[in-house]
Structure formats: structure tokens, C-alpha cells
């Protein structure tokens, strides 16, 4: 029997008020994988990630992480276990300095490791080191995305949930962010990546899921999905 995946979602339903955004999703992420979640706007990708982080309550279903049921845990307890999200739209603490943003990323980690992790983040994104005393809201779009990813890395994620990291960025910055994602995997971080840029995401990922109006429409290896005529026609625009 294969080992239990790091994250396993079963029959997950969630939404806002009476509107069901995710209508029964099964999904797995194994340790060390990059899994891409692609689909059109409003397919439920962001809702699914928010439910995994615990900031959106479940209607029903279960979430297991590292062998334990976590659907009853508060968001901060999930961060403590290593589920860390880079939310859509970056959601920085705009009036706070870049340094404060990063330090707060380590809110659930010991102070001792904060300085060490800060060095790692600054090595990954030297731009942030230069701008550490600026308010995060004053950074450019690309720098804000680096700050958001850096803040998440400060929490020492076991599973990093990335929600549209390339949204609104210039093409060369998109490449840079995706290269960073690949580098993080090489460092042993497991990644669940939500992207509108489906071709790039599937090319990078080990496996992928295609979400369609709240349900999984296709799944398979990144390569297989890229080659699937149905997926190509509907989502990749090729």
C-alpha cells in the first residue's frame, strides 16, 4: 500500500452563504509533489484553497493532513502544522514594513529561527532586503508577490498553497515567480499551485486537476493533461 498522501481532501463542499462554490472535490497531494489546480474564473479554485487553510468553513467533507483530520482546526492551528497559503491578490499588510510582514509570517515559529529564515528569504529575493523598511503597500506588483511568498516561507511550510502567484505580473516576472516555485520544490516544499496560466502551471507540475464549476473535470499527470485534447480545447486555448 502506498504511503498516505500529505494532503487528502474528500468530498469537500464549501461556499459563501447559500452559494456552493465547491461541490464535492476529492484531491490528493503527496509529499514532495507540485500539484497544479487549473480552471476558469469562478471554478472554485480559491474557495478550495481557503477551505484547506480553514478561513472558509466547510459545508461537508474531510481534510486530512500528515495523517490527521484537520477540518476542525482553526486557521492558526493549520499554519502551526505547516499548511501555509500565499493568497490571491497577495494580501500583504500594506501599512506595515516589509520586515514586519516577513516577521509576522513566522508568527507561529520560534523567534530563534526567524532570523535564519529571514536570511533565506532575503537570499531568495534580494529586492526585499533592499526594501525591508518600506511599507509593503508601496512595493511594485512583482515585489509584493515576492513579499507574499517570502512571508509564507517564513512559516516553514510543509505544504505551500499558492493562489495565482503570477496574476497581474509582467511576463518576465511570471517566469521568475514560476522558477522560484520550482526551486522551492527542489528544497523539499510540497506545493499546491492554483494558476490561470494553465500551460505554465501544468508544465511545471507533477500532477494536475482541472476544476470546472466546483467539480474535478479532469486529473492526471501534468504531461497527460497538457496532451489531452479535451483539456487543451477547453482550458489551454491551443
Amino acid at each position: 500500500m502506498p504511503p498516505e498522501p500529505l494532503l487528502s481532501v474528500r468530498g469537500l463542499r464549501c461556499g459563501y452563504g447559500r452559494i456552493e462554490a465547491v461541490k464535492g472535490v476529492d484531491l490528493e497531494v503527496a509529499e514532495g509533489e507540485i500539484v497544479a489546480l487549473v480552471g476558469a474564473n469562478g471554478a472554485g479554485k480559491t474557495s478550495l484553497l481557503r477551505a484547506i487553510s480553514g478561513v472558509l468553513p466547510l459545508f461537508s467533507g474531510s481534510i486530512r493532513f500528515a495523517g490527521e483530520a484537520i477540518e476542525g482546526l482553526a486557521p492558526f492551528e493549520r499554519v502551526a502544522r505547516g499548511i501555509v497559503q500565499v493568497p490571491e491578490g497577495r494580501q500583504l499588510f500594506a501599512p506595515l514594513s516589509v520586515l514586519d510582514n516577513l516577521r509576522l509570517g513566522a508568527f507561529r515559529r520560534g523567534r530563534a529561527r526567524t532570523d535564519e529564515n529571514l536570511e533565506r528569504v532575503f537570499a531568495l529575493f534580494p529586492r526585499l532586503a533592499e526594501r525591508r523598511h518600506l511599507p509593503a503597500g508601496a512595493l511594485s506588483g512583482g515585489e509584493q508577490q515576492m513579499c507574499a511568498i517570502g512571508r509564507a516561507l517564513m512559516a516553514e511550510p510543509r505544504l505551500l498553497l499558492l493562489d495565482e502567484p503570477s496574476m497581474g505580473l509582467a511576463p518576465f516576472l511570471v517566469d521568475e515567480i514560476l522558477a522560484t516555485v520550482a526551486r522551492l520544490r527542489a528544497q523539499g516544499v510540497t506545493i499546491l499551485l492554483v494558476e490561470q496560466n494553465a500551460v505554465a502551471a501544468l508544465a511545471l507540475a507533477d500532477r494536475g486537476y482541472v476544476l470546472e464549476t466546483g467539480r474535478i473535470a479532469h486529473s492526471g499527470s501534468g504531461r497527460a493533461l497538457l496532451d489531452d485534447p479535451a483539456v487543451r480545447a477547453a482550458y489551454l486555448g491551443i
Binding site: 487553510s53 480553514g54 478561513v55 482553526a74 486557521p75 492558526f76 499554519v79 502551526a80 501555509v84 497559503q85 493568497p87 494580501q91 500583504l92 499588510f93 500594506a94 501599512p95 506595515l96 514586519d100 510582514n101 516577521r103 509576522l104 509570517g105 508568527f107 507561529r108 523567534r111 512571508r151 509564507a152 512559516a155
Partner: peptide
């Protein structure tokens, strides 16, 4: 203090505060 920063962070963006693990 870090907790003071957490209070300011919650004021600035509650969703992000929850996502970095602030109770």
C-alpha cells in the same frame, strides 16, 4: 513587539492575519 505587530496586521488585513497564523 511581535504581538503588537500582530494587532496592527489584524487591523490592516484580517484574512492575511489568519493565513499567517495569527489567532
Amino acid at each position: 513587539t511581535l504581538f503588537g505587530a500582530a494587532v496592527r496586521a489584524t487591523a490592516a488585513n484580517r484574512l492575511a492575519a489568519e493565513l499567517v497564523g495569527i489567532d
